[in-house]
Design a protein around this nucleic acid. Structure first.
Lengths: 218, 218
DNA sequence: TAATTTTGTAACTTAGTTGTAACTTATGAT
DNA sequence: ATCATAAGTTACAACTAAGTTACAAAATTA
């Protein structure tokens, strides 16, 4: 597990380097945004601890413009009075924040928590599509795609049965379960036409005479 | 699906034994690491539920030293304050954890989730042909061959009855089942002609006057 | 209640599938 | 070796499943 600390205050760097040396995490650090950016392009980093005041820019903007799309969990180091900004960043996908001054023990506790959470996420990624099975949210390139409840239901079944053909009949039954309506055979076809139109990425495979399937990558 | 519970608290064992008796899983239990180890050497276990506090050792170490290499998905039963250790184990390959006290309902939900993901594949390989029963795909040299639903149905039956002759009548019945049409005797012949044409590898054996067969290699 | 979205159906298109018929070849029993 | 029968081959016409489009009913939301 690799953690990148982006921070220019040498005391903090030393303190954390010591604290993490006793953990099973590898701590890297960069003292400015530019170095961090270059580093992130070559290394696999699992979590970022990001100071918001950096010599060559503002951590919040760096997160918004660069980190967010990478989907690396990020913990902000902030001053107590950044509160408004923090709320907005948490909405944006940041994982947590901690206000200075902080105890290294508390920071490590948060790191653990964040990594636990990301490990337990139930998300399937196929091509540029991610599907969150717990939250029933489908994203394309990190952008939520609006699907109706039946569309989600159908996708959910296909994702739960990854690499297995799901028969039309099963899908019809599932819709009956959810809505109480028995829909026509062709109706299923129309749903998939609509889903495909919305997600635009070709992940749903038709098995003529049988049903539909989604495969994971390999 | 066989599950092994490694736990020394009798109340938990009883509770889970009851809960799992109503599920499709078989629950075995051992009350210490040593017994569990012996048991695992002779039985095929699909998932382990592992208490971390056991009379003859610590579950975390048992996982690290013994289970990890077996690649059996493991769910830890932990106290709430083991968080640091949990993270490290999850990173190490454990599948999930649950903190005591827990509801059996939640535990079963997690078991379902884990086993859903690790379900084994249903693939038969003969010469350069692989048949994936779940995905309903036939591959030749890793290249998908497009088969119609009836062709798949017929192959499916032959693959399910590997090394056994399947009578023409059985095949005709199966097609009736799937389509509602009684097809002519000769129609079956035509199907196999088409299948052979597509797969080009000689794996379907004709037994004149009886039916068809696929043999596995040996 | 109006406006909007969702849902299901119908009608049409297209491509591919299915089943048969007619013919040829192979097999095995005599 | 011959013959009868089963299986293989070929070609074709009918059919069917799925994709598409458009629209109306139903449900949600404002």
């Amino acid at each position: 597990m690799n953690i990148l600390l982006i921070e220019d205050n040498l005391n903090i760097i030393k303190g954390l380097a010591f604290a993490f040396s006793k953990s099973e995490y590898n701590l890297f650090y960069k003292t400015n945004i530019n170095d961090a950016k270059n580093f992130l392009n070559t290394e696999k980093i699992d979590l970022i601890i990001l100071d918001v005041m950096l010599p060559d820019g503002n951590g919040f903007n760096f997160f918004k413009d660069f980190l967010k799309s990478k989907e690396i969990p990020t913990i902000f180091l902030t001053a107590r009075d950044d509160e408004d900004e923090i709320v907005s960043q948490l909405m944006n996908g940041a994982e947590d924040y901690i206000t200075k001054p902080f105890s290294t023990k508390e920071l490590i506790a948060r790191v653990n928590k964040v990594l636990l959470r990301s490990k337990n996420k139930n998300i399937i990624k196929i091509k540029d599509i991610t599907f969150d099975l717990d939250r029933m949210i489908l994203k394309k390139d990190n952008h939520v795609i609006n699907l109706t409840s039946i569309e989600l239901k159908l996708l959910n079944i296909l994702f739960l049965n990854l690499n297995k053909v799901v028969r039309r009949g099963t899908l019809i039954d599932a819709i009956f379960d959810a809505t109480g309506n028995y829909v026509d055979d062709h109706t299923i076809t129309v749903y998939f036409k609509r889903i495909r139109e919305k997600i635009k990425t070709d992940i749903i495979i038709t098995i003529k005479g049988v049903g539909y399937r989604i495969d994971d990558e390999k």
